[in-house]
């Protein structure tokens, strides 16, 4: 860990002012990613602006039925919130499938959006990594890429999977990310918040320099929907997803009226799968139809040396989740 300046902010405005447009400053929320990477010397901020004192820890129902979540709401508080449990089961389940109790008690909603990848070549501080050192290459391609590397949305510059469970649920639900910065306030569609690596994997999100996430506003729940998160991994807890699915469905009898499907562990960003959704709508509840639809998510997948299994595994995550939701 290198020496850095440290400031505490009492309000978003104060935090933004303290941060400035200094590319070397970082907001400190739960710190579960940031402090880890600082200790590994992978991130070297010159200044940390601690936002634990800003009053962004509330969850409010808006008049239009949407749910507004303060950026500092912890993963534990969000997962246990009764409105979330009742209306967004997929989100509660996704949160509880992530990390450990101790980490969820510290980790925040805004911080989870800013989670960085688990690629060991990014974290080792030495290997070629375009994310850490643009232009240096991607050691994961041609290296060990079984667990935390993607098959969707990859590029020749980066194949690291997005690690979040929470974001996969939010991708399925639909949300707006409210941010505040030196230029004022704005909203970013959740789908546009995380960026594909392309040629610029060092750019991971749509925030401008100095912008602070203040809230995430979830779309109103689909009336009469059921939802669930299914996470597949080697061990049963405390591991990032090899493949996961967030599924929301509404039924007309035995027919799918509406479906939202997002995937984790397989994509370079939280991966909404509209082609699967389109293939499901109007279809009868049938495991074979689910399998046919799930296949579409991976039509353009790229399998690397050790993660080709994620292509069928991701489909299984969709099919089993849909089956359980529609036949329970």
């Amino acid at each position: 860990m290198r020496a850095f300046d440290y400031a505490r902010a009492e309000s978003p405005a104060a935090a933004i002012a303290a941060h400035g447009s200094d590319g070397q400053a970082a907001f400190l929320a739960g710190g579960t990613t940031l402090l880890d990477l600082v200790k590994l010397d992978v991130m070297q901020p010159r200044k940390l602006v601690d936002i634990n004192g800003v009053a962004l820890d509330r969850i409010e129902r808006l008049d239009d039925g949407r749910l507004r979540i303060g950026a500092m709401v912890t993963n534990t508080a969000l997962a246990r919130d009764q409105r979330v449990v009742a209306d967004y089961a997929v989100l509660s389940q996704a949160l509880l499938a992530g990390a450990s109790t101790q980490l969820r008690n510290k980790a925040t909603t805004g911080g989870n959006l800013m989670q960085r990848v688990r690629c060991p070549y990014f974290r080792d501080g030495v290997s070629a990594c375009n994310k850490r050192e643009p232009g240096s290459g991607c050691a994961a391609i041609g290296g060990v890429n079984r667990s935390v590397h993607a098959v969707l949305g990859t590029s020749d510059s980066c194949i690291a999977a997005h690690p979040s469970d929470m974001c996969v649920a939010m991708a399925a639900i639909g949300a707006k990310v409210q941010v505040e910065g030196p230029e004022g306030r704005r909203e970013i569609d959740f789908a546009d918040f995380h960026l594909l690596p392309g040629d610029t994997p060092q750019r991971e999100h749509a925030l401008a320099p100095g912008e602070l996430i203040t809230h995430v506003v979830l779309d109103a729940p689909l009336a009469g929907s059921r939802s669930a998160y299914l996470k597949l991994r080697d061990r049963q807890s405390y591991q990032f997803a090899l493949a996961s699915s967030a599924v929301i469905v509404t039924l007309d009898g035995d027919t799918i009226r509406e479906a939202r499907v997002a995937l984790g562990g397989v994509g370079t960003k939280p991966w909404r799968a509209p082609e699967v959704e389109a293939a499901l709508v109007g279809q009868p509840v049938s495991e074979q139809r689910f399998a046919d639809a799930a296949k579409r998510a991976f039509a353009h997948a790229t399998a690397y040396a050790h993660n080709a299994y994620k292509i069928p595994l991701g489909q299984q995550a969709i099919v089993r989740n849909l089956t359980d939701l529609t036949t329970a």
Partner: peptide, 16 residues
């Protein structure tokens, strides 16, 4: 004995 060794339908890797 990881799950990928037990799956039946793993496609070939298209790249490294």
């Amino acid at each position: 004995i990881t799950l990928d060794k037990l799956m039946d339908d793993v496609p070939e890797a298209r790249t490294a």
